[in-house]
Simulated assay, not measured.
Amino acid sequence: MAVYDQMMKGLLDGAILGLIAQGETYGYEILEKLKLNDFPEISDGSIYPVLLRLDKKGYVTTRMVKSDNGGPKRKYYTITASGVEQLIIFKRKWTALNHGMNNLMRSVEDVK
């Protein structure tokens, strides 16, 4: 399962950056959007380290917002210019990799 975990780690960075690029959002909302888009096997424990890493790299900024219902504050994420650049690079590389993998997998479809 180690190979799968490594693939998911790389994909999550791009997927989460892509979601944040659509507009300011918070962790639980990101998790729900990933699930709605059929992203496999995602838990809240897997996205928060990614969000922290994206923040440390300067790809997102955060702000704390007080809850309307008296609950804990919520951390909202917004993509930075550097994050947009990284997302563009990710999309370019993902498109090429996806094309290559699809070609390869079509050639091994009969393997059981």
Rank of each mutant, 00 (worst) to 15 (best):
Y59P: 03
E41M: 09
K112R: 11
K75Q: 00
R92Y: 10
K57F: 13
L11H: 15
Q86I: 00
E32Q: 03
L97P: 11
K93L: 06
D38W: 02
A21C: 05
E85T: 15
I30H: 07
K91G: 12
G18E: 10
V50Y: 04
Y26C: 05
T61E: 11
R92G: 10
Y26L: 08
P49V: 05
E32W: 03
S107V: 13
Q6G: 14
T78Q: 09
E29H: 10
G14F: 01
L36A: 11
T80G: 02
D110I: 08
Q86F: 06
I47G: 08
T61F: 00
E85D: 15
L36P: 09
G14T: 06
A96S: 06
L12R: 10
P40I: 01
D5K: 10
K57D: 13
R63Y: 00
K66G: 00
S43Y: 14
I79G: 04
M105L: 14
I30K: 12
V65D: 03
W94M: 14
Y28R: 14
T25L: 09
I47R: 04
L34F: 02
D55I: 03
R74L: 12
R92N: 15
M101R: 10
R63M: 02
Q6I: 11
E109T: 10
M7T: 15
A81T: 01
V108T: 04
I47C: 08
